[in-house]
Design a binder for these strands. Structure first.
Lengths: 117, 117
DNA sequence: AGAACAGTTGAACGGTTGTTCAACTGTTCA
DNA sequence: TGAACAGTTGAACAACCGTTCAACTGTTCT
């Protein structure tokens, strides 16, 4: 039995359970990065607000009682991940959800949370 | 027009857009906390591995090439959030997905990622 | 042109969080 | 009983990340 550099035996587990394999590692990192975007209360509040109607940055910042800067930083992340799209109209830049998956995913999560109680 | 303590005008935004309201704040924090669990590559790898079959801790740690301690810490979080359940059988403690929402949510996320390309 | 508002950006600070390490509990087997 | 393996736990450290701040760009209006 091989010994690694830390002195722990490798394959110390004697169980002969299913030789499970892991899905594509690269995809797992993409998945985690995707979910990270939903894992912040500022971003999730932005997304649920946009789920109802398109909004400009200053409307969002008033709605969340946050500075435009903080909101803008988060919007940038959401934009880069194609979760929201934006369009300038005059002085304002209006943000909207980019596709319907956001809606679906939040829906499923709410179902799970609802069942907890 | 009121001025706040930072010297920034409140309601400086002149736009008379939809007076959007935000969903229950408390729920937003729960949602973010829920998604945080999926937003880590170790945890998402554990969840997708368990999606295929139940596994004991040492099998998971070999599968991910991580220490049992690191895996155990993450399993604790998943357990506390009712995403996985566990059962001791002899020396081993077997972990499995707690419900089918996990499957659904990951499915939706994969659809979104797939459409990016 | 210049004032005022809308929005973005990069650096910096502070809090959060994942892994490591060491010590611990629980189970099996000789 | 005690050795060996399976798994958990808390503290500590390092890396990550969200907000703040100040300076910047872009648009409108006089």
């Amino acid at each position: 039995m091989s010994i690694n550099e830390k002195g722990n035996r490798k394959h110390s587990c004697e169980c002969v359970g299913a030789v499970a394999t892991l899905p594509d590692e690269e995809l797992m990192f993409e998945l985690a990065d995707f979910f990270k975007l939903f894992g912040d209360s500022t971003r999730i509040r932005i997304l649920t607000a946009l789920d109802r109607t398109e909004l400009c940055v200053c409307e969002i910042s008033e709605l969340l009682s946050m500075t435009k800067s903080a909101v803008s930083h988060q919007l940038k992340l959401l934009r880069q991940s194609n979760l929201v799209k934006c369009e300038r109209r005059g002085k304002h830049i209006y943000y909207a959800l980019a596709d319907s998956h956001v809606r679906d995913i939040i829906e499923k999560a709410l179902e799970h949370i609802a069942e907890e109680n």
